[in-house]
């Protein structure tokens, strides 16, 4: 399985370049054009990442979560899940940068190849900022009654979180 994972990126790059050449695109120039746009993206997300890392660090380092969820600790430590997965799962639907900041914190504390590091990675990859996307998309066409959109979206996220945990345990145990 990990061999397939390792082949994904090289094959994808190969395919994109090959297809571009086949369609007679000036791939080098187009690449530079896109890279420039990427630079603008980085420039735009830089301040928000700093802002979120700042707030998340103050919050996590205060140890308030350990204080509030002490009763969950025995259960979580049996399952080898750090408490930080909990806020990450809760914040993921609202802010992508905030959950990225928490994931970074988990990597620093436990390492990316720890069980929790892997769960965090899969979690970040398999869910999206549901609440933010709904607000943006419905807001753009002035829909005020969203019916079962939010609850269904959050249900999918919840299953994603559950699946991340189960799949990581299955793959890497």
């Amino acid at each position: 399985m990990s061999q397939i994972s390792k082949l994904m990126i090289p094959l994808f790059v190969l395919f994109v370049i090959f297809y571009g050449l086949k369609k007679k695109i000036v791939i080098y120039d187009v690449f530079l054009e896109g890279a420039k746009e990427g630079l603008v993206t980085v420039f735009n997300i830089f301040p928000s990442i700093i802002a979120m890392v700042f707030a998340i660090n103050i919050f996590l380092n205060s140890n308030i979560l350990d204080f509030l969820f002490q009763f969950l600790n025995p259960l979580l430590s049996i399952l080898n899940i750090p408490l930080n997965i909990l806020p990450m799962a809760l914040i993921r639907p609202i802010s992508g940068t905030a959950s990225l900041a928490i994931m970074n914190d988990i990597f620093i504390k436990y390492g990316p190849d720890s069980l929790s590091g892997r769960i965090a990675s899969v979690l970040q990859g398999c869910t999206d900022t549901t609440i933010y996307v709904l607000a943006l998309y419905f807001g753009s066409i002035k829909i005020s009654k969203t019916r079962h959109a939010l609850s269904t979206g959050l249900f999918a996220d919840f299953i994603g979180i559950l699946a991340s945990f189960l799949i990581v345990n299955f793959f890497f145990s």
Binding site: M1, S2, I4, S5, K6, M8, I9, L100, M103, N104, F107, I108, G111, P112, D113, G117, R118, S121, V122, L123, G125, C126, T127, T152, G153, F155, A156, D157, I159, G160, L162, A163, S164, I167, V168, F171, F172
Partner: peptide
């Protein structure tokens, strides 16, 4: 993957397939 690489993961890409599987689960559920 980039962040995993930065924190010296031995196998930064190993989460691709698990993430795809988890995505499929959540999409089907939703």
């Amino acid at each position: 993957i980039a962040l995993r690489l930065m924190h010296k993961s031995a196998n930064p890409e190993e989460i691709i397939i698990p993430a795809i599987l988890a995505t499929i689960c959540s999409s089907i559920a939703g």
